Amino acid sequence: KFNKELSVAGREIVTLPNLNDPQKKAFIFSLWDDPSQSANLLAEAKKLNDAQAPK
């Protein structure tokens, strides 16, 4: 279960257009550290992506 959630969340995070590479890497490392938090980490990444969207 975690492997699928981890890969789905990881793929989504790397495609978020408004995150820079260090931010993406930080989220990916957090996913590896605790795969059970993949849904929460993906939600946080999406929030940050939205907040950094060009206005």
Rank of each mutant, 00 (worst) to 15 (best):
K4D: 11
E5A: 10
A26T: 06
D34M: 05
D34S: 05
T15M: 14
D33N: 13
I28G: 01
L16I: 01
S30L: 15
R11E: 08
R11M: 12
F29I: 12
V8S: 14
S7H: 13
K4T: 12
I13N: 01
K24A: 02
P54T: 08
L6D: 04
D34W: 02
P17G: 04
S7M: 14
K47M: 08
V14I: 14
Q23R: 01
A26L: 09
A45L: 02
A43H: 06
I13K: 00
N49Q: 00
P17H: 04
A26N: 07
W32M: 12
K46C: 02
K55G: 12
S38K: 08
L19Q: 00
I28E: 04
I28P: 01
K25F: 14
K1R: 12
S38Y: 14
K4V: 14
V14N: 13
L19R: 00
Q52L: 07
D50S: 08
E44F: 08
N40H: 12
A45S: 02
Q23F: 02
P17L: 06
G10K: 10
P22A: 15
A39H: 07
K25S: 11
N3K: 08
L19E: 00
R11Y: 11
A39T: 08
A26S: 08
N40W: 13
A53I: 06
A53S: 10
L19K: 00
F27G: 00
A9V: 15
F29H: 10
L19C: 02
W32G: 03
Q23N: 02
D34T: 08
K4A: 12
S38F: 13
L31V: 04
P22T: 15
E5F: 11
N18C: 07
F27S: 00
P22W: 15
F29C: 12
P54K: 09
L41R: 02
K55D: 13
S7Q: 11
A26V: 06
K55E: 12
S38N: 05
L6S: 06
S38T: 12
K47N: 05
A51N: 06
A43F: 08
A26D: 06
A51L: 12
N20A: 08
L16E: 01
P54Q: 09
N20E: 06
L41H: 02
D21G: 13
P35G: 02
K4F: 13
D50H: 07
S30G: 08
L31F: 02
V8K: 12
A9W: 12
Q52V: 03
A39S: 10
I28C: 06
K25P: 02
N49Y: 00
K46T: 05
D33R: 10
K25R: 11
V8R: 10
E12Q: 08
S30M: 15
A45R: 00
E44V: 07
K46Q: 10
N18H: 14
D21P: 12
A45C: 03
N20Y: 06
L31I: 09
S36T: 10
K47A: 13
Q52H: 03
S30T: 08
W32P: 02
S38Q: 07
P35C: 03
I28N: 00
G10R: 14
A39K: 08
A26I: 06
S36Y: 08
K25W: 15
S38A: 15
F27E: 03
L31K: 00
A53Y: 06
L16F: 05
Q37S: 07
P54G: 08
L31R: 00
E12P: 03
A9L: 11
S7E: 12
N49V: 00
K24N: 02
E12F: 14
V8M: 11
D50T: 07
P35D: 02
A9K: 04
K46V: 07
W32K: 05
A39E: 14
W32Y: 13
G10I: 15
L41N: 03
Q52K: 04
E12Y: 14
K25A: 09
K46G: 02
K46M: 09
E5R: 07
L42K: 02
S38D: 05
L6V: 11
W32C: 13
D21C: 15
D50I: 10
I28H: 01
E5T: 09
L48A: 04
L16N: 02
D50M: 09
P17M: 08
F2W: 15
Q37K: 08
S36V: 04
N3P: 11
F29G: 06
K24Y: 03
L42C: 03
L31Y: 01
K55M: 13
I13P: 01
S36I: 05
Q37M: 07
A53N: 07
V8Y: 11
R11D: 07
A9T: 10
D34G: 02
L19S: 01
Q52P: 02
A9P: 03
I13W: 00
L42Y: 02
F2P: 09
L31P: 00
N20S: 15
K24D: 00
L48F: 03
K1A: 11
E44A: 11
E44P: 00
N40Q: 13
S30V: 06
N18A: 06
W32F: 11
E44N: 04
E44Y: 10
E44W: 09
L41D: 00
P22E: 15
Q23L: 03
A39I: 08
E12V: 10
L6A: 13
S7A: 13
D33Y: 13
N40Y: 11
P54V: 10
N18V: 00
V14P: 02
A39Y: 06
A51E: 11
K1S: 12
T15W: 10
Q23Y: 02
P22C: 14
D33H: 13
G10T: 15
K47I: 08
S38C: 09
K25Q: 12
D34L: 03
P17V: 07
D50C: 08
A45H: 01
K24H: 01
P54L: 11
S36D: 07
L31C: 04
Q52Y: 04
F27K: 00
N3F: 14
F29N: 11
A51T: 07
D33E: 13
A39R: 06
L42H: 01
L16S: 02
D21Y: 13
K47T: 06
L16Q: 03
P35A: 05
I13F: 02
K55L: 15
L19I: 04
Q52D: 03
I13Y: 01
K46F: 06
D50K: 07
A9I: 15
E12D: 06
N20L: 09
V8L: 14
Q23I: 05
S38M: 14
A53M: 06
V8Q: 12
A43I: 10
S7D: 09
N49M: 01
Q37I: 06
N49E: 02
D50V: 06
K55P: 14
F2G: 08
P22Y: 15
S30K: 14
D50P: 00
V14F: 12
Q52C: 06
L16P: 00
Q23D: 04
E5G: 08
A53H: 05
L19T: 00
A9N: 05
F27N: 01
Q52E: 03
P17F: 03
Q52S: 05
A51G: 05
D33V: 12
K4Q: 11
D21T: 11
N40V: 13
N40R: 13
D21Q: 09
G10L: 15
P35W: 05
N40E: 13
A39W: 07
E44K: 08
S38H: 12
K25H: 10
P17S: 05
N20Q: 06
G10F: 15
L48I: 06
N40S: 11
T15H: 11
A9R: 05
K47R: 11
L48D: 02
K55A: 13
A53F: 05
A26E: 06
E44D: 06
K47L: 09
E44M: 11
N18I: 00
Q37C: 07
P17C: 10
F2V: 10
L41Y: 04
L48T: 04
W32D: 05
K24W: 04
K47C: 08
P54F: 07
N40F: 12
P35T: 04
Q23C: 04
P22D: 15
N49K: 00
L41Q: 01
D50N: 07
